[in-house]
Computed example of a mutant assay.
Amino acid sequence: MSKHFSALEFKDAEVTDPVELVTKSIDDLTKSVDERLKALETKGLDPKLVERLTKLEAKANRPGAAASTDEAKELERKSINAFMRGEPLDGIERKSLTIGGSPTTGADLVAPQYLAQIITKLVQFSPMRAVASAMGVGTGKVFLPIEGNALSGTWVTETGSRSETNPDFGQVEIDAFEHAAIVPVSRQLLEDSIVDLSGYLSNQISKQFGKAEATAFVSGDGNGKPTGFLNTPSAFDQVVAKQDGSNILDKLISLFYALPDAYASQGVWFMNRTTQGVIRSKAVLATNGILWSDGLADGTPARLLGRPVYDAVDMQNLVGTGSPVAATYPIAFGDFASMYQIIDRVGVQIMRDDFTGADNGIVKFRARRRVGGKVVLPEAVKLMKATVSGS
């Protein structure tokens, strides 16, 4: 009895190699497709259909076209297992494991890393607390007695008449003002954050409150905030210099010696870094660095005419703005501890409020501070006034 087999069956054939079996099957398929295409062409087949069949034929002739998706997955599985065991990989296995590939080719084996810290920006503020006087008070208003006219005596003869004399006094009123902020944060963010968010917020509140009060101590207008010493520059004796810096060294020497020695011996220079750069460049060129000297150790201020120079970001620039160009007050020198008084009523307080925003899943950090400041003895400090003409 004769047997009938299809074109893809080779049970009675001598070919037993699976690769040869697949190759012969592809050859037979290709031959069959060619015969059908020729037959159809003679019947006037649609050219588009002929193009599609041609592409299918080309695809079937590609090496490895008969490989199934299951075979590819098996290769990926073997590659990952070999990688995890530390075994060497051949070329194909190595290509199947890539970081930028799909999860099945090893992308899930690489996890990102997050640091449990926040990179914070620099917060700069004038070091008024380092040079002024500060004291804690138990009330919201303080009156400081200030000496007015001093008593005076007269020279007299042995039996001559003596005149009476008494000193007089004034007083400076300093109010404590409140500075406050509310920081709302979602409860889930506080719970899930990998950083200490509460500690970060506390640190930022302290820095920003310090910056705000330092600015007020320098230029505050006294309206709901401390009164800065530059709010009323007319209260101080002044030395006038040109804004182009052409005579600034001579004027610095005049400013230094315009202050009584008792104050000058305790005096400090207050200016921003831009002004410092102008002075230093001219001092080095003119005096070979004699007027200006750097600090002897890290963290210690530079010295100008032997007295410390403090970097005060809230001080005005040497050159003014506007038209006509406005006068500025870029430099102050003197005994700030005698000139300016800071009062501390309440330090920085931070209260965590878990209730008022609870309906919306919000936790509020409420911060406040009560502080005041005012000029009490303007004679202890001299200002440099900068104008276009220098007069």
Rank of each mutant, 00 (worst) to 15 (best):
R94M: 09
A111S: 12
I119V: 09
T98S: 01
L115W: 10
P127D: 02
V137E: 01
I80D: 05
Q124T: 11
Q113Y: 15
A134D: 05
G106T: 00
L89M: 04
A111R: 14
A116R: 14
I99R: 13
A132D: 00
A82I: 00
R94W: 06
L122A: 14
L89G: 04
S102I: 11
R85F: 05
F125L: 06
M128G: 08
R85G: 08
L122S: 13
S96T: 13
R94Q: 11
T139D: 14
G101A: 01
E93S: 11
A130P: 00
G136N: 13
I119W: 05
S102H: 12
A116L: 05
S133I: 02
Q117W: 13
G106P: 00
A116K: 13
T98N: 01
D108G: 11
V123F: 07
V137K: 00
D90M: 03
A82K: 09
A132C: 06
A82G: 01
G140Y: 04
V123K: 07
V131L: 09
Q117G: 15
P112Q: 08
A82E: 01
L109G: 08
G140F: 06
L115H: 12
Y114S: 12
A116M: 09
G136S: 14
F83W: 08
A111V: 10
P127A: 04
T104M: 13
G100I: 04
M128Y: 09
P112M: 04
A116S: 12
V131S: 03
A107F: 02
G91R: 15
Q117I: 09
F125G: 07
Q124R: 15
D108S: 13
V123H: 08
T120H: 06
E93V: 05
T139P: 05
M128V: 12
D108N: 14
M135V: 10
G101N: 01
